[in-house]
Every structure is written in C-alpha cells, then in structure tokens.
Design a binder for these strands. Structure first.
Length: 614
DNA sequence: TCGGAATGTCATATT
DNA sequence: CTAATATGACATTCC
C-alpha cells in the first residue's frame, strides 16, 4: 500500500485562501461547450421551461444532463498529472494553494467537511476512461431529471420574485451582477430579485462553470481502479470547514469539471451528492414557500420593506397584542385572557374598570338628582333622557372618569353610533362650548334627548321607574336590590327593571365583545404581517446560504484539484484520479486513498442519511 | 328604496 | 344555582 502522508491542511487552506475561481473555470470549463449547447436545447424543449436561459446556466444544466445520459464516455484529457511534469512537494503545493486560493470570502460559513471522498464514484466505469481528477470525488444522488427540475423550480421562483417586485431590498437580498445576461433575457432590471437569483445561477456558469456540477450527476461515475493504496495526507486543523459541511462528503462537492473534457464523460451510476441533496431540499422548500407567497399574494420584497418599516415595533406588536389594556374595563375580571392590543381606542379606557364605572354612575346619579322619585315627569324625562347618553358615553369609553367633562356635550354626538368612538375622537370633535349648548332652548334639547333615548329608557319612563336606567344597569347587585327595596314597585315595574338591567349589561357586553373581536382581528393582521416579514427574511437568508454554499463548493473543488494535481508518488509521477481520491478524515487529516475505498465509504455514508430520514 | 355599518336584543354558553 | 359575562344570530337604526 502506498501510504503517503500529505502535509496539507486542506481545511485550513480552504479557509484562509480564496481560490481564484476564474482560473478554475478556465481550467475545467472549456470542455463541453459544444455539447452543452446542444443539450441545452434539448433540455429546454423537453422541460418546457419558462423562457429558457440563454445563458451559460442553461448550458451547464444541459451539460449535466448530457453527462448523465451519456455514460461511459472518456474523460477530458485535462489531467493535472499530464501537464505537470515536475513533481511538487506537498509543501510546495500548499504554498501554491495559499497563494492562489484565498478562502476568506466565505468565512461566515463554517465548514464542516468530514470526508472528501466518502462518496464514491460509481464502480462501473473502466478506469481508463476516468481521467477526471474530480470524478472520483463526485458523488451525486440527483438524477438529471432532478437537476433539471430543480433549476426549473429555482428559475420559476426567481421569476416570481422578480414579478413581485422590486426595489431596494431586492438588491440587498441578491446582489446580481449588473450585466447579467439572464436578466436581460427576462427583460428585468439588473437588480431585480430575479436577476439576483439568476446571478446565482449564472455564477455557476460564468464565474465557474464547474459550479453547475454541484448539482450534476456526472460527477460521480468513476471507476475504481484499483490499488488499495492508502495515502494519508497530513492531518490538519481544519475544523472550520466541518461546521459548514457537516458530515457531508467532500467528494460530493466536486463536480466534473470541464476537465472531463471531452464531453460527456461519465456514465456510471450516479451517486448522490450530499450537498446536492441539501440544495435540492432547500430549493424545494423555497419553491413551496414561493408558492405560498403567490397564493397569499405575498411579496417577499415588500415584506422585507415592511420589516424595515416596522422593525422597531415588530416585537411590540406581537407582545403588545396580549396586553389587556384596551378591553380591561368591562373585562376587568377576564382581562387576562384578552388579546386586545394597544390599538388607538384602547388606552383611554384601560385604567377605568368596573369599579370606576360604578363610581361614575354614582356621579351621574348625583347630577341627575338622586331623589328622582320627587321629580315630575318632565324633569324625570329630561334627566332620564340625558342620563342615558351620559351612561352610554361612559360605557362607550369604558367609564373612564376622564371623559366626564365631555358628558354635557354629548347631545352633539348624533346617535348611538358614537359608542365606539374613541374618547380622543370625541374630545377632538368640534363640539360647541358647553355653556352655549346648555343655554340653548331646553325644549329643543329635550326633544333631541327624547329622540336619543333608548327604548328601555322610554319604557322606564312610561312605567315611571323612579330611578335612572344607568343605576339600574350599573349598580352592583347588592346596591341594586337595596334600591329596589326602597320603592314600592309593581311587578311590571320590577320586571321591566330587571329586563333593563339585563339588556343594559348585555349591551355593554356586546360592545365589549365587538371591540374585542376587532382587536383580535387587528392583532391577527399584525401577526400575519410579522410572519410575512419573517418569511421574507428567511427566504432571503436561504438564498444567501445557497449562494454561499455554492461558492464554498467551488472553492473546495478547486482546492481539491490543486492539491490532487500536485501530488506525486515515489516516482515523481502524478496519481491517477481514476485510481485515487482525497479524503478528509474526521480528525482533520487529508488522506489519499484508492478509489475503491472511497467508493465504499461513500456508499456507507449515503445509506446513513437515508436511514435517518426513514 | 337599498345596502352597509353600527348597535341593540335575545338566546345560550361560559365563568 | 345565581349573577355576570361572552358571543352568535338576528333586529333595528341610521346614513
């Protein structure tokens, strides 16, 4: 067994260096141009995609598909070994990598790469054909169809987003390159979300054609050739990557670069790419989300804008929704359950509870003249007629004592509909000065008040009930009974009084109930807004993560190729990618292992996730 | 006069 | 069980 320890901290390099993707692209990318185009056409025809992507993205997709379909093809001739006649030491490789592949960009994404080559290329292929350096590492679960579907979905999502709108936030969300060809095809502004998404798509194409390989199955199929040599590379402290990629197989990260070159190479069975799968799910999720958004007429971008607008109080809205303030007065006993919000009308009444109301009613009674029994009918009418409005107003405002001052002018309130007016509204209403009103003709006022009397008040007057409806309604049971005992009332009168009390209480209850209902609706609306904001944010984040993940994959791929291409055996010859693969061990070391081994491990790892899902 | 919104009432459930 | 409340459904009132 050839066990060579490579003193390379792959992860470390990954993190510290940023690979020049452009170069990588150049290296791997030129191969399938021709075929890609053909495939692209086929793809679009078959899939009936929206408007097709004229750009490279389509090509890339096509490439992937093409590869799948055509198995067993010879690999591109671009094997690193062939070009590099001189064997480089590992140290040299490292230096080179460091110099050329800074990985700083994605620092925000902790990477977790447990294994580079756990995913194994398919066994079926003849070793000879597989010159692709990356191929061994490539493992893709996705079938061509899946890929296509994914991209279609993704594109549709982007399209939807673009349609939905606009603007500034979109830029933030997805920074699309200005001259994005795709965007032009869509006739969209460069910065529209769609562009952004497109850019994502395109990034894989333009910036790095390999990118596409992330989702491409072609990656996998590599024959295992042979030897069981195990060449351990030097372990390094590359824990950082692990976090990001978790236990994913690095192999999955690498796609068949243009290196494969000659077109359509691969044919073997396709192994799943862990990351690819991840992306798949993510994209599917996104799609579903977008579907929801569409159904709801929800515009993520708008939502994000809302978010900005409401950010300051978003928390409040949710939390405050549980504040009992608005409904407290009548719900004194049950306020805890109230979900009323701090809506406009609520505050004034918050502090006034039933106790306040009772005291208030007492006041009203005083004004009305407590010894009502002595009043003549006319006086009683006036008093009674007036009181009701007074009490109504009190109820309306939840008996907030602060509103007492307004009572005299209630006549101007028109009709009972003023119930629900917020106290502030009443205050602000241009009511003529009290004095002038009061000094107006009493008769007119009496008529007016008479008209404003409720049915129960009329009934009470007709029955000559000796006290105000307000008292009847608002007095506590004890006082109420006490009051009744003071008078000699007929059965009819008693019955009426009880009805008045019942109806009066129910009237207030109905008002409160309606107010509660309104508050509930408002709160729900607020909740919906909050959720929409959250949803938009999550979508943005998801897009960001996907983009970053893609970049990471690109970088890892480039690194892998760099490292592998510079490895030399005892004789100073490069290792064959068809026979060896790099594997990142759990302890941070990077091993050069035979493909057969890598395949086995890849299969093993593949099963695990599946089992878990079940 | 019609329709809708705001209220009031009733019956009934819940507290 | 009674009283108070809450709430759905229907009625009334007003614009």
């Amino acid at each position: 067994m050839n066990e060579a320890v490579l003193d390379i901290d792959l992860i470390d390099i990954l993190w510290r260096q940023d690979i020049d993707l452009g170069a990588g692209r150049e290296i791997f990318d030129y191969s399938h141009r021709q075929k890609e185009q053909d495939v692209d056409k086929e793809l679009r025809d078959g899939a009936e995609q929206e408007d097709t992507w004229p750009g490279e993205g389509a090509e890339a997709l096509a490439r992937n598909l093409l590869v799948d379909g055509e198995t067993g093809e010879s690999f591109p001739a671009q094997v690193p070994g062939g070009e590099d006649q001189t064997a480089l030491s590992l140290e040299e490789c490292l230096r080179l990598l460091e110099a050329t592949c800074p990985f700083g960009e994605n620092a925000e994404f902790p990477a977790d790469i447990s294994s580079i080559t756990e995913a194994v290329p398919s066994e079926s292929e003849p070793p000879g054909l597989q010159n692709n350096l990356l191929s061994p590492l490539l493992t893709g679960t996705e079938s061509p169809f899946d890929l296509e579907q994914q991209w279609q979905d993704l594109m549709s999502i982007m399209e939807m987003q673009a349609m939905e709108v606009n603007t500034s936030t979109s830029e933030i969300l997805y920074d699309a390159p200005p001259g994005d060809p795709l965007s032009t095809n869509y006739s969209l502004a460069p910065n529209t979300p769609i562009n952004q998404n497109v850019s994502l798509h395109q990034a894989s194409l333009g910036g790095c054609s390999q990118d596409f390989s992330l989702f491409s199955p072609e990656v996998e199929s590599l024959p295992v050739a042979g030897s069981s040599t195990l060449l351990p590379l030097v372990p390094s402290n590359s824990t950082s990557l692990n976090s990001t990629f978790g236990s994913t197989n690095l192999a999955g990260l690498f796609f068949p670069p243009q290196l494969n070159g000659t077109a359509n190479d691969t044919a073997g069975p396709e192994l799943p790419d862990p990351l690819g799968g991840l992306l798949d799910e993510a994209m599917l999720d996104e799609i579903s989300l977008m579907d929801l958004a569409i159904e709801e007429g929800f515009n993520p971008v708008q939502a994000s804008q809302l978010e900005e607008e409401f950010d300051s109080d978003s928390g409040l809205s949710l939390d405050s929704s549980h504040s009992p303030s608005s409904l407290s007065s009548s719900e004194g006993s049950s306020s805890s359950s109230s979900s009323s919000s701090s809506s406009s009308s609520s505050s004034s009444s918050s502090s006034a509870s039933s106790s306040a109301s009772s005291s208030f009613s007492e006041e009203g009674a005083v004004g009305y003249s407590s010894d009502s029994e002595t009043l003549d009918l006319e006086e009683a009418e006036g008093a009674v007629g007036y009181q009701p409005e007074y009490s109504k107003f009190c109820r309306m405002s939840y008996q907030d004592p602060a509103q007492l001052s307004c009572l005299p002018y209630l006549e101007h309130v028109g009709h009972n509909h003023t119930y629900n007016m917020a106290p502030s509204a009443l205050d602000s209403a241009d009511l003529p000065p009290p004095s002038t009103l009061k000094k107006g003709s009493k008769e007119k006022q009496a008529d007016f008040l008479d008209k404003q009397m409720s049915r129960d008040e009329h009934r009470a007057r007709a029955m000559k009930i000796p006290f105000t409806n307000d008292k009847i309604i608002n007095l506590p049971v004890e006082e109420f009974n006490e009051l009744l005992s003071k008078y000699q009332l007929s059965e009819a009168q008693l019955s009426l009084i009880r009805d008045i009390r019942r109806r009066g209480k129910n009237k207030m209850a109905a008002q409160n109930c309606r107010k509660r209902k309104l508050d509930t609706i408002l709160n729900l609306e607020r909740d919906v807004e909050d959720l929409q904001r959250d949803k938009a944010r999550l979508l943005r984040e998801k897009v960001e993560f996907l983009r970053s993940l893609r970049q990471m994959k690109q970088k890892v791929q480039s690194l892998y190729q760099e490292v592998f291409g510079r490895l030399r055996d005892e004789n100073g010859r490069p290792y064959s990618p068809s026979q060896y693969a790099l594997q990142y061990a759990g302890d941070g070391s990077v091993l050069l292992i035979p493909r057969t081994l890598a395949d086995q491990q890849a299969r093993r790892q593949e099963r695990k996730p599946k089992d878990r899902r079940k």
